[in-house]
Structure formats: structure tokens, C-alpha cells
């Protein structure tokens, strides 16, 4: 059995029912593969005692799972109400300029994916940007070049 399979089995022990571990299991698989290709879904399914189609149905429901390849780094820029009022549109545009892509795309070298996001729960100091699941706030348009430079170097 693969390491991933064993790790998922350990997870399931924490829940009253095995299937409850599907989110953490998919998260582990995604960390392992970078996204969720068919073989990842098959592996999760067999560890949970369910089918790959079931796992695909779950993965497609939640924003944090990716069925197709994404960049090594993920930039989520909140564009919801509070951030929008304080200039989220300009921050998103600054990222687009700096990366040379539109929101929703990945840089051609496969390094960075940019998305606009719904409220991230940091509305008092917008614009909130989540980079690889770590928040930066507030981010102003003029901060963007340094943020991107840091990611490109890192």
C-alpha cells in the first residue's frame, strides 16, 4: 500500500464514520500530486471504501480542490464587498499586470495561479490576499510587485 493510502487510513480513525475523512483525505492527495488527477481520486476512493466518481463529485463542489493542474503557488485576491470598497479591483489588476495573466489563469511557466476570491474573513483591512493559504492584509496595489518578486524567488 502507498504512503498516501496509509496516511488516509490513519485519518479515518479519527471520525465516527470513514467517509467523513473525505475532505482531509482529498487535501492530502492534492498536497501529494499538486492537483487531483484520476489516479489520486482512485487512491482516495480505495482508502475510504468509496468510488472515484464519488470523490470527484466531492472535489468539484469545493473551491480549494483542483481537478486540473494549477500553479505551484496560488494567489487568491478577495474582491468581495468590503475589499471592493477599498480598491480590490486595483489590487487584482496590479497582480494581472505583474504576472502578465488574467485572473483565473496560470503563468505559462506553471509557477503561479491567480484567482479572484470571495470574502476571506479579513474585511477590516482590505484588500485581503491569500497566498498559498496564508493571508496578507492589507495589500495595496503598490505592494504587489514585491509580493510577486518574493514568490518568484521563493
Amino acid at each position: 500500500m502507498s504512503e498516501l493510502f496509509n496516511e488516509i487510513r490513519e485519518l479515518t480513525d479519527r471520525y465516527p464514520e470513514r467517509k467523513s475523512a473525505v475532505l482531509p483525505a482529498l487535501r492530502l492527495a492534492q498536497e501529494h500530486y499538486g492537483h487531483l488527477p484520476p489516479e489520486a481520486l482512485r487512491e482516495v476512493a480505495s482508502a475510504l471504501g468509496t468510488t472515484p466518481a464519488y470523490c470527484r463529485g466531492i472535489a468539484s463542489f469545493y473551491d480549494m480542490f483542483h481537478l486540473a493542474p494549477v500553479g505551484e503557488h496560488m494567489i487568491d485576491v478577495c474582491t468581495n464587498a468590503s475589499c471592493a470598497l477599498v480598491g480590490a479591483a486595483q489590487v487584482l489588476e496590479a497582480f494581472e499586470r505583474e504576472l502578465g495573466i488574467h485572473a483565473g489563469e496560470t503563468t505559462p511557466d506553471g509557477r503561479i495561479t491567480l484567482r479572484s476570491a470571495e470574502c476571506l474573513g479579513g474585511c477590516d483591512s482590505g484588500t485581503v490576499v491569500s497566498i498559498d493559504e496564508r493571508y496578507r492584509q492589507p495589500v495595496k496595489p503598490e505592494d504587489v510587485p514585491a509580493v510577486v518578486e518574493e514568490l518568484r524567488r521563493g
Binding site: A89, A103, S116, E118
Partner: peptide, 11 residues
């Protein structure tokens, strides 16, 4: 102040 605002559905 909201000019140019976009959202995930645009993508």
C-alpha cells in the same frame, strides 16, 4: 469606488 470590480464568476 467600485469601478472595475470583478468576481470569481467572471472567471
Amino acid at each position: 469606488s467600485l469601478v472595475g470590480v470583478r468576481s470569481p464568476v467572471d472567471e
